[in-house]
Design a binder for these strands. Sequence first.
DNA 1: TGAGCTGTAACTATTGATATTACAATTCAC
DNA 2: GTGAATTGTAATATCAATAGTTACAGCTCA
Lengths: 147, 147
Amino acid sequence: MQISSRFTLAVHIFACIDTFGNEYKVTSDFLAGSTNVNPVIIRKILGQLKGAGLIEVARGTGGTTVTKPLDEITFLDVYNAVECVENGELFHFHENPSTNCPVGRNIHYILDDKLYRVQSALEKELASITLADIKQDTEKYLSEENR
Amino acid sequence: MQISSRFTLAVHIFACIDTFGNEYKVTSDFLAGSTNVNPVIIRKILGQLKGAGLIEVARGTGGTTVTKPLDEITFLDVYNAVECVENGELFHFHENPSTNCPVGRNIHYILDDKLYRVQSALEKELASITLADIKQDTEKYLSEENR
DNA sequence: TGAGCTGTAACTATTGATATTACAATTCAC
DNA sequence: GTGAATTGTAATATCAATAGTTACAGCTCA
């Protein structure tokens, strides 16, 4: 099972806010146009990003702004905001291993620390990338288009 | 979305083969008992592990054996064998970003390398853990039980 | 030859992702 | 104030993946 497209959508949204925020009012309809995703889905993601304190959404009048410097928002912040995994656990464990079997009743002791290591490696890499990197590459690719 | 429990099940299966393989015939029913998961699901996973060349399953007579030394089978091998992600891509991308929007038509250029970095970090950590580690910890926790 | 087992098909239930319609509540320009 | 634009959210629908279950043909060997 893949990680929800809410994550790539959220990054796309930030790229739009940064690129168009000065020129246009960035509404859910605007973002729906750029991502080609339903505006209600966009609004749900905006709600999650707002809940995490990463953006502000203007009620009534519309429009979205980022609350912090882009280099202070990591991919991990975004990933956590849009709740890509349940209970913060990347791996889904089979629910009720047998307590009658020695392996079954110890499998969590055996495996959990290793799963944690793997998940931490993912999160560490996510934390090493910031929205400032996205801004930089967005500007780069957009300026290459205009040559 | 979490990574399918097929992965933790597969590791559990290897722990059982190693622990009980000498004493018992490790059948899908036996494994279903230890994992508390339906035997047909177990057989499907066994089929995937067999397809990846990690185990052999005795048709007719029943029973499962590992084909290689345990320190030559990594978590990544197991993870790939049970097809946890589609097309080998960890992140699900929104399908049709707008080609009319400069951000939309460049979002893959902007994001893909970063998603690849994150996925590689996950896979690298998976590759660093082998079934020999599982064997070692299984023996440790089982011997602690018998004190 | 029969018991035990695998491989697989078929069907079901459940869950999460995503799309869609609808509408109350909000804000601001006029 | 009023109306147009927008957000927040509920309700419903569709689709895909997971996982459970029953059933059975085919294999193997004692």
